[in-house]
Design a protein around this nucleic acid. Structure first.
Length: 565
DNA sequence: GCCGTTTTCGGCCCGACTGTTTTCAGTCG
């Protein structure tokens, strides 16, 4: 019996109880018990006091004891025999919760989505008290919608949509200030919807403007403080706008950034002090409202350090407040080790990339165009690379405020060999090795290729080590813990590729690398000047893995970096 | 169902919107 099974069982029990229309507090008691176990860092064998944990009482305790003893829960088994399995997916239909589903089952014996669809079409559902024609139509529409719409949308699909919305909001006169919030602001890899908060003194006008200027497919809700729409784009995306007054900005931003668990924790802290947190501010015991100029002020009011959005997750962040000041921030970043120019498949000349990097205030960058093998990307031949090294040397002499290093993003070929020989690699300041081909080879072959790169004395770093594309492609499936071991042994850097398509290594892998003291470089892999901005995303993604500045190569001074290479 | 050196009963984070009724329940984030 492992911890995960116990957590899953408790959550399943909660789900089945919810489908029975049980008391919501009872349901959440089981969820809370599951969360208590989840948030406890110890493994099951290390926990001798499981039944005395706060949040685990006699009933949930018995479930756990039973699971430990014979591997199953009679409570769950009983619930599963009473509640048809077909009810579970019905919770996915917006507008339907436990109570309504329980009623549909009890009164009309509806035990699946198909049965629900039939009953709606036969106009049986509107005969129930609490249901009417409009509800019936809505359920039918949502069932149709269910198949066509993905549950979550990847961050790289959302990014251009967020930018489009931001440009629209900026053009609406009555909007004073706005910000994206929600899980997108927390840098989740994928989100269910996009949240914006807007400050205005004429909410009704802004509401109308929003519905006008955006490509609205469907209005989900449109009240005085909240507008929810589905946008008609390549990917249908839901967007929530919350309209508040200027002095409520910080509280609203905090509230709608979440996460839900983070907010609940904050409210419990406030409650212990007799205060009440809402999206409008903090209400004191005498009923007066406290407002804040920033989220920093808000946290300080509760004697907490500023908790960045990226780590506001399951509540465990409150146990790690002492680590917050060590987290890497954009201000700590002194350079970028991976970018392309027109020499291969980049959009700008080396000089333009240097100028854009100077504008960022970097102390150093490395130009790393593709190597010979990658013909589709106009990879550099030996001769062209030698030429490029000279060009970079000359260019570098022109600058006193930034050091430009000559590098390469060299392919690790399908047969495991490296695209350039050591004689050439020797002449470069910085060598990246990466895989762009034959992803479907057996894992042993992939690892053999990576091993050859890691053990080459002239290679400094492995880029996008797994080759994944967020929410779309798994990559070439290396054994990452082994790769981390090798990197440690041979003194290599592993990359956090900051492009929103990649975010590679992912947070789990980054944590492992940090535990092994393997240095991480956050790189934009920019193919265009504008993409240098992804450093910000990379840094915030690194925060999600709780990476301290010390683990990040980009925080090194020029001297430290020179010493390393 | 769980919790409590103010409580063993009465709360549990808090508020918005919709649809169904006519003062509110259910759902959602």
């Amino acid at each position: 019996m492992d911890k995960k099974t116990i957590i899953n069982t408790l959550e399943k029990i909660a789900l089945y109880m919810e489908l029975q229309g049980e008391n919501p507090f009872k349901v959440s008691a089981f969820r809370k018990a599951a969360q208590v176990l989840e948030l406890d860092a110890r493994s099951l064998t290390e926990m001798d006091n499981i039944l005395t944990l706060k949040g685990i009482g006699s009933t949930t305790g018995k479930v756990i004891e039973e699971l430990l003893e014979n591997g199953e829960s009679s409570l769950l088994i009983e619930l599963q025999s009473i509640v048809p399995k077909g009810l579970l997916p019905m919770l996915k239909i917006p507008g339907l919760g436990g109570k309504k589903i329980a009623k549909l089952y009890k009164e009309l014996q509806i035990d699946s989505i198909d049965a629900l669809k039939e009953a709606c079409e036969a106009k049986k559902v509107q005969t129930l008290a609490g249901f009417a024609a409009k509800t019936e139509e809505k359920i039918l529409a949502e069932i149709d919608n269910l198949q066509s719409k993905p549950e979550r949308t990847a961050i790289w699909k959302l990014e251009p949509i967020v930018e489009m919305i931001e440009s629209k909001l900026a053009a609406i006169e009555q909007i004073e200030k706005f910000s994206v919030a929600g899980s997108y602001r927390r840098v989740k890899e994928a989100s269910k919807d996009i949240d914006f908060i807007i400050t205005t003194s004429s909410p009704q006008q802004v509401r109308e403007e929003l519905l006008q200027v955006l490509p609205v497919l469907k209005v989900i809700a449109a009240g005085d403080t909240k507008v929810s729409v589905t946008l008609d784009l390549d990917d249908e995306v839901d967007v929530d706008f919350r309209l508040v007054e200027a002095h409520q900005y910080a509280s609203a931003l905090n509230h709608f950034t979440g996460s839900k668990d983070h907010n609940i924790k904050m409210r419990q802290i406030a409650k212990e002090q007799g205060k009440k947190i809402s999206e409008y501010g903090v209400e004191l015991e005498d009923g007066t409202m406290q407002h804040f100029n920033s989220e920093q002020e808000f946290y300080a009011y509760f004697d907490l350090p500023f908790i960045p959005p990226t780590v506001r997750e399951d509540g465990s962040e409150f146990a790690k407040l002492d680590q917050l000041s060590a987290l890497v921030t954009l201000d700590d970043i002194k350079g970028d080790f991976h970018m392309h120019s027109t020499w291969s498949d980049g959009a700008h000349s080396i000089e333009e990339m240097v100028e854009a990097s100077r504008a960022k205030g970097y102390s150093y960058i490395v130009i790393t165009d593709h190597s010979d093998y990658l013909k589709v990307a106009n990879g550099l031949s030996k001769e062209r690379l030698v030429q490029q090294i000279e060009v970079i040397k000359e260019l570098n002499a022109k600058y006193t405020d930034i050091e430009v290093f000559a590098g390469t993003e060299m392919d690790i070929l399908p047969d495991g060999s490296l695209d350039f020989d050591d004689e050439l690699l020797k002449q470069l300041d910085f060598v990246i090795a990466s895989i762009h081909s034959s992803f479907s080879q057996p894992q042993e072959k992939i690892m053999e290729r990576l091993f050859n790169a890691v053990t080459n004395p002239y290679v400094h770093m492995i880029a996008h080590p797994t080759g994944r594309i967020v929410e779309q492609r798994n990559g070439y499936n290396p054994v990452v813990p082994t790769l981390i071991e090798w990197a440690k042994e041979h003194g290599k850097i592993l990359e956090l590729n900051a492009n929103p398509y990649r975010l590679d290594l992912n947070t789990e892998h980054l944590k492992l690398a940090q535990q092994a003291s393997v240095p991480i470089a956050i790189n934009t892999d920019a193919h265009h000047m504008d993409q240098l901005k992804y450093m910000d995303l990379g840094v915030r993604y690194a925060q999600k893995a709780w990476l301290p500045k010390e683990s990040i190569v980009n925080t090194w001074t020029l001297e430290q970096f020179k010493q390393f290479i």
